[in-house]
């Protein structure tokens, strides 16, 4: 039993953090706890520290409104934290859509559905750019007006209304139309966080010497394109599309994958050398 928990320790940690953050928001709204109030778009920590979604701020700015200093400060705090640690850790350690997506992929495997449609994983960057252009044209934060991620987060804290149908639709899309469809192909918020995670410190490292080419990591990874070096060379998973979810680390029986810290400065010099 202890072994099994050890095998899933990162999953347990991720779910615990996801549920705890949600719990704190709920306690803030319904019990008046001062730890975390608001929601994932903008919140206040311990009644003082502002936290804001930098992508939402970007849309506000694009729509033609100078965001308040409170919101801007909150955005900078989030940018610094995720920029430093790892941008897309939001996706796998905080975002609750992660649980929806995981359930979808689990259902897909249980039902044995093979999805036919192939989408480019670059679409999300297109949507990201498009959302900012549209925000400027219509004068309203374009993605926030339809964001299923925000619908889920707001719904869980303040009540869903008909919003659950949107979540269900995307769940079914993930199960039956495109595997990892939303989080891995379309979500511009994830695209944004992979942008700001370019130089982050916490990364997954691969050791070619220990790797037995079993490809178990490919089975569990939601962003398989980041695993390009597996079995080929020892090094850090470079792509900032990696969400640090640690599924590969859990799946690996050979200890060929593990977390490591890298210097953000080294990363930049390396890039220069390459170009």
């Amino acid at each position: 039993m202890t072994l099994k928990i050890n095998k899933y320790k990162y999953l347990v940690a991720r779910r615990s953090i996801q549920i705890t953050v949600l719990g704190l928001f709920l306690a803030g709204n319904y019990l008046g706890w001062e730890v975390l109030r608001g929601n994932y778009s903008s919140a206040r920590l311990f009644g003082t520290v502002p936290l804001s979604d930098p992508y939402a701020i970007l849309q506000i700015l694009a729509s033609g409104f100078i965001a308040s200093t409170d919101v801007l400060l909150g955005g900078i705090i989030i940018l610094v934290i995720y920029g430093l640690v790892n941008g897309r850790m939001f996706c796998s350690w905080i975002c609750l859509f992660n649980i929806v997506a995981d359930t979808a992929i689990w259902s897909n495997k249980r039902l044995g559905i093979t999805t036919q449609l192939r989408l480019s994983r670059k679409i999300r960057y297109g949507i990201l750019v498009l959302s900012l252009i549209l925000s400027a044209i219509i004068g309203i934060s374009a993605f926030e007006a339809i964001s299923p991620v925000s619908i889920l987060h707001r719904g869980l804290i303040f009540g869903f209304g008909a919003g659950w149908a949107v979540i269900l639709a995307i769940f079914l899309f993930d199960v039956a139309v495109v595997k990892y469809g939303w989080c891995g192909h379309l979500c511009p918020l994830g695209a944004f966080y992979s942008f700001i995670g370019r130089f982050s410190v916490l990364k997954v490292k691969h050791s070619k010497e220990k790797c037995t080419d079993c490809l178990k990591c490919f089975d569990v990874c939601h962003e398989v394109q980041v695993l390009d070096i597996i079995g080929k060379k020892t090094g850090i998973i470079q792509s900032s599309e990696c969400t640090n979810c640690a599924r590969c680390i859990e799946a690996c029986d050979d200890e060929a994958l593990f977390f490591t810290l890298r210097s953000p400065l080294k990363q930049t010099t390396k890039k220069k050398q390459l170009s």
């Binding site: 608001g38 929601n39 778009s41 206040r44 926030e144 707001r154």
Partner: peptide
């Protein structure tokens, strides 16, 4: 419509549950 970041802190603060966040 531009400025609101949709965080619901006003709804949270309202002691009478007067305020609601718009649903789809």
């Amino acid at each position: 419509l531009k400025a609101c970041i949709k965080c619901g802190q006003c709804v949270d603060a309202c002691p009478y549950d007067t305020l609601k966040l718009a649903q789809p």
